Amino acid sequence: MDDSFYQKNLENSQNPTLQFVELNKCGLGKNSSKEMYRKRADILMSEFSGAVALETRNRVLNHSLNCWSNVCAVWNACLESEPSAFRYSSCDTCEQRVSHVHSLGVNHKILARKKFGALEEALEYHQRLYKVKCQQDQCPGSCIVDLVVDLHIFIELDIHPELTCKASLRCKLRDFPTNLNFDGVSYRLAGVIERIPGHYVAYTRRTNGQWQEASNIKEKIVPSHGGHEIEPHGVIYAMKT
């Protein structure tokens, strides 16, 4: 990991998925690949327990796990305790409440018209909202709602230029803004997730600006480049120092 600020925060996280990332970065010693796959399976089993199937192959009982889902749902499940933002709702009638915002949405019309370079403009993000109806049952009050962004931000993407268009909007990796600003806090472009038939592909942008591709149909992480064209379903930004 080449981001020392994010790394430091990762070391203090209690989230199982982020702990797995930290452990994998440090290495697991002998038989590390086997141990890595076992730990990854344990995490996914805990989040997708209803998707476990049993199958006998060559007289051996195998457990298979179907985690196929919307990438946003996977992110929400695995990083439930490490959301993109916290929503603080202060009601004038009842109590203050805190809830997790796992991902940020976008205005599809803006992106369809201006493309992904306008991502910051298209974000559905408001630092403070006034007179929001209280969500508590039978509470007649209104709230002041503050949104506080966290260490990393996941933005869900699956942009269709028209409602009748089946294909999602495509772009090149370099089309994404390298930085986003949230109320004076800067976030760097850390990764993009692409959906292709049957699976997802992850593209990591290193702090030196170089891209890498990780896919389950390739044995190793391979270099990529900003001119590579994809169909993005999500983008990740990480807080800068």
Rank of each mutant, 00 (worst) to 15 (best):
M1S: 12
D3Y: 07
K8I: 12
N9C: 04
E11H: 11
N12F: 14
N12G: 14
Q14D: 15
P16L: 07
E22P: 02
E22S: 14
L23Q: 10
K25F: 09
G29P: 10
S33Y: 08
M36L: 11
R38A: 08
R38T: 14
R40V: 06
R40H: 07
A41P: 02
S46K: 10
E47V: 08
F48I: 00
S49M: 10
S49W: 05
A51C: 14
A51D: 12
A51S: 15
A53C: 07
E55N: 02
T56V: 12
N62E: 12
H63V: 04
L65T: 00
N66E: 10
C67K: 05
N70R: 09
V71M: 13
V71T: 06
L79D: 05
E82Y: 03
S84C: 13
F86H: 01
F86N: 00
C91G: 04
T93A: 07
E95A: 09
R97C: 03
H102D: 02
L104W: 04
L104R: 05
H108R: 00
H108D: 06
K109M: 01
K109H: 10
I110D: 02
L111F: 03
K115R: 15
G117C: 03
L119P: 04
L119R: 02
L119S: 04
E120T: 03
R128F: 01
K131L: 01
C134R: 07
S142G: 00
I155Q: 02
I155C: 06
E156K: 15
I159Y: 03
P161Q: 12
C165S: 14
C165P: 01
S168R: 05
L169P: 02
R170A: 10
L173P: 07
D175I: 06
P177M: 04
D183Q: 11
D183M: 00
Y187G: 04
Y187H: 08
A190F: 07
P197E: 07
G198A: 03
Y200D: 03
Y203S: 01
T207I: 15
G209V: 04
G209M: 05
Q212N: 01
E219R: 13
E219H: 03
E219M: 03
P223T: 08
P223I: 07
S224H: 01
H225Q: 12
H225R: 14
H228N: 14
G234W: 03
T241C: 14
